[in-house]
């Protein structure tokens, strides 16, 4: 059996989450990957351990991973594959269901475990239940959670690169602009430590109280939806059911109450620390270590103590 992985990338870099999709696909069979963009991205894809072939969609219409042309391309490549896989990020979730519809297949999103070639485990109800589902479709189209599969090593492979010719699709969409946050910090989804702030951070300015702590720990910074909605941080910081799903070694929540939609995005972290002034905050029910107190006092003390 052979699986085709849509290997998404950003600013010319293959996303770490896409490397997790390679690991998941390798459980299902031989792994071919589809990449768009420059030749350098295709070369990076060829070096990923476990990849046996790279299909490079070099045509400019694919550069921005627009769903309309890319789904048509995937559907045209599908006859050679049993499984079509992507990481469960914004790109995969945009493109794969469309490709599945073209193939008359019901997709299986957010897979966290592979039981067999046709049976998969996925969270439903914001992670409050885990459904094991068996697909009767001839082909399986799935997105996988990066937190559930280790990233395949970016080096060690030497796959052949094949350029794929573009296929026709209706010219109905146009890429206009992209605004990426230029953070020096580690990527939220693959960071070892995540420091997150909620509504308790009070303002955009005060949210920066977490910066020295994140610097000291080499952590990524995340946020609750309330913090994003209040404009303290941009949307890509959001952790939760509708934001990013993270499972770092250490997750530290400051001024976050612990709504189920937030827990959905972080409760599989190895160690959870919660700092909240309300001793009844539900976040304490999932925290390994809790501290009841004012975060604006705790955070500087923590930075000092960590530096010792």
């Amino acid at each position: 059996m052979t699986a085709l992985v849509l290997l998404d990338h950003e600013s010319g870099q293959i996303r770490k989450a896409a490397l997790s999709a390679v690991t998941a696909a390798a459980r299902l069979g031989d792994v071919h990957v589809l990449v768009t963009g420059d030749a350098s991205v295709a070369q990076a894809a060829a070096a990923v351990a476990g990849v046996s072939k790279v299909l490079h969609a070099a045509d400019a219409r694919y550069t921005h991973e627009l769903a309309e042309p890319l789904a048509a391309l995937i559907a045209s490549l599908a006859p050679a594959y049993d499984h079509i896989v992507a990481s469960a990020g914004a790109a995969g979730k945009n493109v794969l269901p469309r490709a599945a519809a073209l193939l008359d297949v019901q997709p299986i999103p957010d897979v966290i475990a592979i039981e067999s070639a046709d049976t998969f485990v996925r969270p439903i109800y914001a992670g409050n239940a885990l459904a094991t589902v068996r697909s009767s479709d001839a082909k399986k189209v799935l997105t996988v959670r990066s937190a559930a599969f280790d990233a395949a090593p970016a080096e060690g492979g030497s796959a052949a690169i094949e350029t794929v010719a573009p296929v026709d699709s209706a010219d109905v969409s146009r890429f206009e602009a992209v605004r990426l946050s230029d953070s020096e910090r580690p990527d939220l989804e693959s960071a070892r430590v995540v420091v997150s702030g909620g509504r308790g951070m009070q303002s955009e300015e005060k949210f920066h109280a977490l910066d020295p702590l994140a610097d000291t720990l080499g952590a990524a910074v995340g946020a609750s939806r309330a913090a994003v909605d209040a404009g303290f941080v941009p949307n890509e910081y959001q952790v939760g059911q509708t934001g990013k799903i993270v499972a770092p070694e250490l997750y530290m929540a400051f001024g976050i109450s612990g709504a189920i939609q937030h827990l959905a995005g972080m409760k599989d972290s190895r160690v959870i620390v919660a700092v909240n002034k309300d001793p009844e905050a539900p976040i304490f029910q999932v925290a390994d270590y809790g501290l009841v107190g004012d975060l604006f006092e705790v955070v500087p003390q923590l930075v000092d103590a960590l530096k010792k």
Binding site: R15, G89, A90, A177, V178, R179, S181, E189, P234, K244
Partner: peptide, 9 residues
């Protein structure tokens, strides 16, 4: 809304 920020189409 995309993983790294925002995009207009």
């Amino acid at each position: 809304e995309i993983d790294g920020g925002a995009e207009d189409v």
